[in-house]
Design a protein around this nucleic acid. Structure first.
Lengths: 191, 191
DNA sequence: ATAAAAGGAATGAATATTCATTCCGGTTAT
DNA sequence: ATAACCGGAATGAATATTCATTCCTTTTAT
């Protein structure tokens, strides 16, 4: 098995967890190296510096999440079903990459993000915004700024997963369904 | 003439803005001193160290926010009106202290908070939780974990104010009313 | 004139980054 | 088949940089 690939993956994985838990500035390179079981210098064989590392990470997971949402998107279906598709995507992505969404959420406005990272993140926002805008035209979605609606969806969803990770509550189908309903009610147009 | 009190206030004000914008770890003491127009050493005349500063700040604004919510709380009124009171409190507090709620939100789980800070924050959560629990008993509030519901309310609200601050959207009575409705629909029991 | 307050350069600890060296797998020569 | 040889990957100690904190001088107030 190719060591180089798996080492890079270890570094990425450790960096993601630490950045998500402590934030970029509170995470040191030796911490990452230690967690990934590599020498500190090894990190610099794969990433030019700490900022390149965090940007690579950010772009990687934003792109992955974007693909998850875009895959099999039910363009012709009802708004409600499109919403369900997006919500399901969030759940699936979070199950596959425990800390990734939280990392994205807490770092998406950070001072160290480069242009590519910002572009990637904007593209992700656009997917959600297009969905909401279309829904607003059809009078299915509440007439509020899309960004505020997006914040409500992510706020509720991520808080849920924080609690599950912390062991405060247990994940279950009903719970997920309940949060989906709550987010949908926050966002949908009420007559 | 700048009295000692006003210097302390300048430091607090600058620290709040910088912590809210860049986070605790990315904010240096010289940055704060510079923004507050004082020497770096002067900060240490008022605060023993950086952690004491951030804890003082945190406790100050959490307490202030708590008082804002508790003041004239309509204990005997309907759940919906209690919700309105809380929401109004958030708006008022944010108008008085632009960055304070965002600072609280982004730092409430930080590793450097001391016991008093945590206690103060818990007390704040308790107010919201008691409200939600009572609402659940009356079947007025959705049966979901209170922390998730709190996250939804704060997520939407704070994102709104981020956008207003950034100049992306303009504040207005309708907008605020719309966000309040959205949060309420997310949280209330639907039959 | 004296004391308190303020300032900001100096200090030292912590941290990012570099680099001389080791290690390891594959290749070549005998 | 074995052993000497290569090249690049990995390492972590050494170095450079950043930043919280201190300390001593200057300023302000009484």
């Amino acid at each position: 098995m190719p060591t180089s690939t798996s080492k890079r993956d270890h570094i990425i994985h450790s960096a993601l967890n630490l950045f998500a838990e402590r934030g970029f500035d509170a995470t040191t390179i030796p911490m990452i190296a230690n967690d990934a079981n590599v020498g500190a210098g090894t990190i610099y064989r794969y990433f030019a510096n700490k900022e390149v590392l965090v940007n690579t990470l950010f772009q990687h997971y934003v792109t992955l999440f974007t693909h998850t949402l875009e895959e099999d998107y039910p363009k012709e279906d009802s708004i409600r079903n499109q919403f369900h598709h997006l919500f399901k995507g969030m759940v699936r992505f979070t199950n596959d990459h425990e800390h990734a969404l939280y990392f994205i959420k807490t770092h998406n406005a950070a001072y160290f993000l480069d242009d590519t990272s910002r572009e990637n993140f904007n593209h992700l926002l656009m997917i959600l915004q297009n969905f909401l805008d279309e829904g607003k035209e059809e009078k299915q979605i509440r007439d509020l700024p899309s960004k505020a609606l997006i914040a409500i969806i992510f706020g509720g969803f991520l808080e849920l997963f924080k609690l599950i990770r912390a062991g405060d509550i247990e994940s279950s189908e009903e719970l997920l369904a309940g949060v989906e309903e709550s987010c949908w009610d926050a966002v949908r147009h009420h007559s």
